[in-house]
Every structure is written in structure tokens, then in C-alpha cells.
Nucleic acid binder design. Sequence first.
DNA 1: AAGTGGTCTAGACCACGGA
DNA 2: CCGTGGTCTAGACCACTTC
Lengths: 231, 231
Amino acid sequence: MAKYQEIREVLLERITDGTWTPGTAIPNEAVLAEEFGVTRPTINRAMRDLVDGGLVERRRRAGSRVALRRTPDAVLRIPVVRDEIEGRGGTYSHLVISRDITPPPPSVRAVFGLSPRQPALWLRSLHFDSGRPHQIEDRWINLEARPEARDVDFAVVSANEWLVRHVPYTRAEQVLYAASASGDEADLLRLPAAAPVFVIERTTWTGERSNTQVRLVNPAESFRLVTRDGW
Amino acid sequence: MAKYQEIREVLLERITDGTWTPGTAIPNEAVLAEEFGVTRPTINRAMRDLVDGGLVERRRRAGSRVALRRTPDAVLRIPVVRDEIEGRGGTYSHLVISRDITPPPPSVRAVFGLSPRQPALWLRSLHFDSGRPHQIEDRWINLEARPEARDVDFAVVSANEWLVRHVPYTRAEQVLYAASASGDEADLLRLPAAAPVFVIERTTWTGERSNTQVRLVNPAESFRLVTRDGW
DNA sequence: AAGTGGTCTAGACCACGGA
DNA sequence: CCGTGGTCTAGACCACTTC
């Protein structure tokens, strides 16, 4: 294990065992460097990890302290639907319900930066797990940012996968919530009317432009997101 | 802006504008150091950010490439309920529904590492937003790991806040899902029977021991999680 | 004003793992 | 084997902020 990692573990131990309680000042880098017999950049590297982990707060001149409010941060990975299904041994398939090139609703138009009559690609698909409906995907793709999308056959490669493979993004915003299935949604997912569903709305940007906006609707009983956090 | 940040932005630009498409090899650190007129550790710093951001994959000897599958990772911050409510101008209050010291169910016992008859602290609370029920908190606290919890008056400080303030953790696992409210839950939250709810289950650990496990139940219509990602 | 963290250099050693 | 990234040193300058 690298030195900075060992040092990080020791510092972490002091925080978690109560030697340094939340709010306590931590010795400055020069002191720690002396204590551990390393140079200051090595200490800095260890401390940076602790800051990233939310356990320590630092300010110039004021020094470092054990963070007072550790709000639970976690890395959320929303799986590619195909991987998710195949990962647990199911058979994946999907179906394009509709494909249109048409002006999007105002909410989408705004993030795409389009004028009122400019079209975008609208794609609605249904993803299946071993024949059972598993997710509705309702997606808009910005053809100004990604003109190639016009010529892709999304019956073969799902939009999800095509985007992951061809479009790196720099910013994403996701909204997660629970809802009751609308009539349409319940029909497509073969659920009782107003059954609970888990909805994910995601917008991704590359630079200033939004590429795509998607709404994913999943039956509550077959969908959970798990996040794990920590070293 | 620091040099490594400027370099990171330039590299990012090359990735997002398609100069380097997913799968493409990126010049090695020595070459980039020459190009940007900096030393190799500075390049390394910039690249590390891109790796952390999921945009680049690196392997020794094999070099660096633009990541092929950028699965959407996002930092999920589940807010402390009080901050969330006060942050949007509401008035926060809470009520302890029940408090017991009793052996937990097997699922909790397992992560706490307790023997069958060892007790833990069980706390059920209701959090209000301006007088309206906003969240049910059903929490177990491991008294073996946190004996002080026995003497805290959680009517004054909510368990959530007490833990955040006194117990730094090193690992967390969270499960998010949608469900229909049970009869109890619907009553407490003043929802119609079987209304959709958003459920968060979180277990946190310090070292090898789990401190606490909590289940948070929120009305679907008033609860959304937003994540933002990127620089 | 002065202490603290943030960053950078120039050079070095080494582990890993693909060729 | 040997090129690549991972890490570390010793020293330095600087920005920020609080004392």
C-alpha cells in the first residue's frame, strides 16, 4: 500500500475511534509530515482523500478539522438496463414503441437550446427482462448536438447503449422520485392501475449543450437502486 | 485556475468535441508533459481527475484511453431532513413515536453482529414540514458500538442529527425504492391507502461495526432526490 | 502580518502487466 | 522485458484568510 494510503488509514482511525471528534482541529501538514516521516505533499494527498470523503474540512490559515456534519454522500450508479438484467441472469430485449422527429415540448426545448419549431428526435422504448416489461424509456435526443443520431437504427442498438458508447458527457442531472403509474404506463408495464413506479429523469450535457433527456419508468416491485460508499 | 485544472479542461475538451473518441488512446504522460510545458506529476493530477470522473481509463504499460462505457455516476446526497425543510423555508419539527431497547429483528441483528437476545435501541420518529408529516424514520442504533446513545434524549435532538454530529462513518450502503404505503405508514403520513411512497434504507458502518440502520419513508408527491454531477 | 493549505518542479524509484 | 503509470522527495512560491 502506498504511503499516503497508510497515512490516510491512520488518520481515519483517529477520527473513527474518537481520538479526534467532530469539530476537533487536526495538526497542520508540516506537523503531520514530521510525525510520519514524509514530505508535505504526501500528507496533502492523504488529507485530500479525507476531504473528498467528507470526513475533514480544511481552510487556509484556519487549518483542518474533523467535519461536523457529514451528510451521507454516495456514488449513485444508475445501471445500463441491459447490464442490470443480464447481470442477474435474465434475458434482455427491447422494443421501439415510437420514433419521431418533431419539435419537443418547452421543457425539453429549453435545455436543448432550440427555437420553437426546431425538431429533435423522440424515441419511446420498452425494455424487457426475460419477456416481462421492465422499464419504459422516453427519450429526447438533441439533433443539433448529435446529428448522427438521425441515422442510427435504435431497434438494433438501444438508445441508451448508443449514447453511452458514442457520447461522453461532462455534466448530468438526475431526479429520482416515486409516483403512481399513469394509465399508459400501467398498460405498457402490465401493472394494475395507479401502481407505484420508480421514476428517473436524467439530462446530460456535453459542454454547454444538452445532448439528451430521458425519463425512465420502472415498476416499484422490481426496481431498487443500491449505493455503496467508502474505502 | 491551477495548471492541472487548465490542462484537465483542455483534455476534457478534446474528449467532448470528438478529437479523442471513446476507445481512443491518449498520449502518455511524458508526451503531454512536454506538450503543456509542465512536469509529469502535474499531468498525472489532471488525468486522475478525469479517471475519477469516469471519462478516462488507465492501465500501466497499456496507457490511457477515453472510457468506452461511461455509466452515469453521480454523487447522491441524501439531505438531513431538517436542512432540507428549512432550506426551502419550511418550519421543521419532529416527534418521537416510540423508543425501546429490545432485541432487533434478524436482518438488523446480522449487520450489528449481535447475539440473539442482545438488545439495541429502536426509535421511530415522525418529521414534519410546517406541521405536515414529511418523513417516517424507523431507526435501530447499535448500543454495542454507540453506548452513549442510551442516554440521549431524542425528543430534543433528532437521532439523525445526533448521529451526524457524533458518529463519523466510513462506509454506507443505501437502497432506494418505491412502494405503496402500508396502513400504518399511510396513517402517519396522512396519505390515502396504498399511496406511493419513496423509501430509503441506509446502513452505516464505522470500521467493522455497523452503527445504525434506518428506514425513511417519504410521500411520493413531496419527495425528490436531485443529483448533479460534473465540474 | 503571518500561518496554513494549494500547487508546482525536477528528478527519481518502482510496480504492474502487456508485448 | 521494458514502457507506462503510481508515487515520493526536497524544496519552493503563492493564495487565501484569519489573527
